[in-house]
Amino acid sequence: MGFRAAVAGASGYAGGELLRILLGHPEIEVGALTAGGNAGTPLAQHQPHLIPLADRVLAETTPETLAGHDVVFLALPHGQSAAVAASLPDSTLVIDCGADFRLEDPADWERWYAGEHAGTWPYGLPELPGQRAQLRAARRIAVPGCYPTVSSLALLPAVAAGLVETQDIVIVAASGTSGAGKSPKPQLLGSEVMGAVSAYSVGGVHRHTPEIEQNLRRVTSDAVTVSFTPTLAPMPRGILATCTARVQAGVDTAAVRRAYADAWAGEAFLHLLPDGTWPSTAATAGANTVVAQVAVDERAGRMVAVAAMDNLAKGTAGGAVQCMNLALGLPETTGLTTIGLAP
């Protein structure tokens, strides 16, 4: 195997998904596994599905433990990545799955996350126009949030082609409970989640809003305003995002479909579904894919783009490995599957 990778935060959902993918990667040897409060406990206690690593004991997240690796993945709570990354040499490829380095504007960080902005790293969404060149030269990469990944990809072709107005974009997205992390929370108890769908962070206060707007601004000179409402669905993983925007005069469903087909031509992980077929989260479980369908509601004058994605795979760990492949000079698809699990 060519490269050795460490995972900091290996006991969490993102860390577990990273390890699941890395175990099947032909060019990666899994090195150090670290944690915070779970340090000193066996990985099998937290990730029983990772049988090849069952005998590993989680170490503390220290510079000494992470030293000597070609790649270090940081699957840590927001605000903790900067100090760890600063202790690693510039030659180490560091991929942060948290929010610390995603936002370009320090004022956005201070408003949405509070505290001092740690800086901005190359943004780990290869499908953004021009982004692959940056990622191939990067030693530091900020993986997008899960909601921004699916929402941005669902909207970018229409925005880039000038088919929609950019100051009236509405996104309502349903996510599985793993998106909230592994820490116990009353609202995530089985008795609260089963048989129920609930909204949260309503009224334009979700932290992923500025990240979505930042991505869309990359492909348009127009001002961008997004109204984003997340909902919690009774499933462990997956996101279904319904994105709408007012269409420009004369734009119909056929024009929108052409724009998406052209934009996604040659993209291994982005799939425009056949006409009349609509996305399901089940089709993306475990896969590094985004599947989408588009239509124009002519009566309301709005484009509707619906996209499904696994929040832990393409939305976090799979996207991180995709970026790693680019930065290490490997084929972008190495170790990643487009095959989902259904039913």
Rank of each mutant, 00 (worst) to 15 (best):
G2P: 11
F3I: 05
A6Y: 04
A14W: 02
G16M: 02
L18E: 07
I21M: 05
I21G: 01
E29S: 15
V30F: 04
V30G: 03
A39T: 03
T41R: 13
A44G: 07
H46I: 07
H49A: 15
L53K: 07
L58D: 04
L58M: 09
L58C: 05
A59F: 04
T61Q: 08
E64Y: 09
E64D: 15
H69G: 13
D70H: 15
F73G: 01
L74W: 06
A75L: 11
A75M: 13
G79P: 10
A85E: 11
A86T: 09
S87C: 14
L88P: 07
L88V: 12
D90F: 03
T92I: 08
T92W: 03
D96Y: 09
G98F: 01
R102F: 01
L103I: 02
D105T: 00
D105S: 08
R111C: 02
W112R: 01
A114Y: 08
W121I: 04
P122V: 05
Y123T: 06
L128D: 05
L135D: 07
R139I: 01
R140G: 05
A142H: 10
A142S: 14
C146R: 06
P148V: 09
T149E: 14
V150R: 00
V150N: 00
S152I: 10
L156K: 08
A160P: 03
A161C: 04
L163D: 01
A173I: 07
G176Y: 12
G179C: 12
G181K: 11
K182L: 12
K182I: 12
P184H: 09
P184D: 14
K185T: 08
K185F: 11
P186T: 08
L188K: 06
L189K: 15
G190A: 08
S191Q: 11
M194V: 12
M194N: 12
A196F: 03
S198H: 10
S201R: 15
V202G: 04
G203C: 12
E211G: 01
E213Y: 04
Q214G: 06
R218N: 04
R218W: 02
R218D: 02
T220I: 12
T220S: 15
S221D: 15
V226M: 01
S227P: 00
S227Q: 13
T229K: 11
A233R: 13
A233S: 15
M235Q: 14
R237K: 10
I239A: 01
T242D: 01
R246W: 00
R246L: 00
R246F: 00
V247A: 00
D252S: 08
A255G: 15
A263M: 03
A263W: 13
F269Q: 02
L270V: 08
H271S: 07
L273S: 06
T281Q: 10
A282T: 12
A283F: 03
A283G: 11
T284A: 14
A285K: 13
V290N: 13
V294Q: 09
A300K: 13
A300F: 00
G301V: 02
V304E: 02
A313R: 04
K314G: 00
G315E: 06
G318W: 08
A320Q: 07
A320F: 05
A320V: 05
C323G: 09
A327C: 11
A327W: 05
L328E: 08
G329P: 10
T333D: 14
L336E: 05
L336F: 09
T337W: 06
T337P: 06
T338F: 04
I339L: 13
